[in-house]
Amino acid sequence: MSWFKRTDSNIQTETPKEMPEGVWIMVPTTGETVHRRELEDNYWVCPASGYHFPVGSKEYFSYLFDEGSYTEFANDIIAADPLEFTDRKKYSKRLEDTRAKTGMNDAAKAAVGTLKKLDVVIACMDFRFIGGSMGSVVGEVLSQAIDMSLKKKIPLIIISQSGGARMMESVLSLMQMAKTSAKLAKLSEAGVPYISVMTNPTTGGVTASFAMLGDFNIGEPNALIGFAGPRVIRQTIGRDLPDGFQTSEYLLEHGFLDFIVSRPNMKNKIGRLLKVVSKSYEK
């Protein structure tokens, strides 16, 4: 007799949140293997099952901007360690290691360019930089993206993938929720469209601030989107969570998303939406 046999059928198993490596890549939901090139040609979406592999800002910029049209900005800021935070590892060391490993400054990038020939600002988070967590740098990159959008009166798109606020910056991370939301209030008053795209996963302080404040809230299929993480909720209520809880489909059903769009269709759909909306705000 086994004491530790799993008897519950609907325990959610964590799906990978970083891009896989290698030539033959296994699809975690079906167990099939697909050739890397086939995935790359299809926006990292499994052609057979529709499973969306995680991708980062570099990929999203190339999927959404017209070819060669974009310029990055707000790329000269990096995290300080104002609290001199240490858990099992020094935050300063964690930052250094992650920068070296990823080649990125922090967990968000911003760029301005065209999408279907419309001027847009796109900011995108990167989960592989400390879980896409939002500290002062992410808050500032997004703020500069909002400012750019406001200054040029062109639509803003923010693509989220994040576990939430960055613990190692404590209350300073919390204040990034206030900062981005205050800036978005200004953008909203100026009547400039803001599209929030939520990808797997979007949780915590990111969901509870800019990600949920889109004029249009969009989800990628089957992305985990929520405030509290599933583990915390399970601990709190002391029972298992229903199938599909906190997925994009669940949020659509509960009225918190405008629509779900698969990655290969994203550019077309956003382009169409912005073309219609822009009639009302472009003079």
Binding site: M177, A178, S181, A182, L184, A185, S188, T207, A208, S209, F210, A211, M212, L213, G226, F227, A228, V232, I233, T236, I237, L241, P242, F245, Q246, H254, G255, F256
Partner: peptide, 22 residues
């Protein structure tokens, strides 16, 4: 904020986010 099943269903994140903006 309460981390419960119904809280998620009714949009805990959206409720807080809207408060910040408003």
């Amino acid at each position: 904020a309460f981390p419960g099943l119904e809280a998620e269903a009714r949009g805990q994140a959206e409720a807080i986010a809207v408060n910040l903006r408003e």
